[in-house]
Computed example of a mutant assay.
Amino acid sequence: MTSSIAAIHVARKQLDLDEDVYRAKLVAITGKSSTKDMTESERLRVLDAFRKAGFQPAPGRKVADRRKLDGKYAKKVQALWIAAYNLGVADDRDDKAMLAFVKRQTRLDDTRFLHHADDARAAIDGLKSWLKRAAGVGFGNTNGQDWLAADGAKIAWAQWRLLNPGADLIVRKGFDAAVYEMIGSRRVHLGEVNGAEWQTVMNALGERIRARKAELGRGVFKFEATLTEAGWKFTP
Score class of each variant (00 low, 15 high):
84 A>H: 07
84 A>N: 00
84 A>T: 03
85 Y>N: 12
86 N>L: 15
87 L>K: 06
89 V>E: 11
91 D>C: 09
91 D>I: 04
91 D>H: 04
92 D>S: 13
92 D>A: 15
96 K>D: 12
98 M>H: 00
101 F>C: 08
101 F>V: 07
102 V>A: 02
103 K>A: 08
103 K>E: 03
103 K>V: 15
104 R>E: 14
105 Q>A: 05
106 T>G: 04
106 T>M: 03
107 R>N: 02
107 R>H: 10
108 L>V: 07
108 L>I: 13
108 L>A: 08
109 D>R: 12
111 T>H: 02
112 R>A: 14
114 L>V: 01
114 L>N: 11
115 H>D: 11
117 A>D: 14
119 D>R: 10
119 D>L: 12
120 A>M: 08
121 R>H: 08
123 A>S: 10
124 I>A: 02
124 I>P: 01
124 I>Y: 13
124 I>M: 00
125 D>C: 01
126 G>K: 03
127 L>N: 02
127 L>G: 07
127 L>F: 15
129 S>F: 13
129 S>K: 06
129 S>A: 10
130 W>D: 08
131 L>Y: 05
132 K>V: 00
132 K>L: 01
133 R>C: 03
134 A>F: 04
135 A>E: 11
135 A>W: 09
136 G>Y: 11
136 G>T: 07
136 G>L: 04
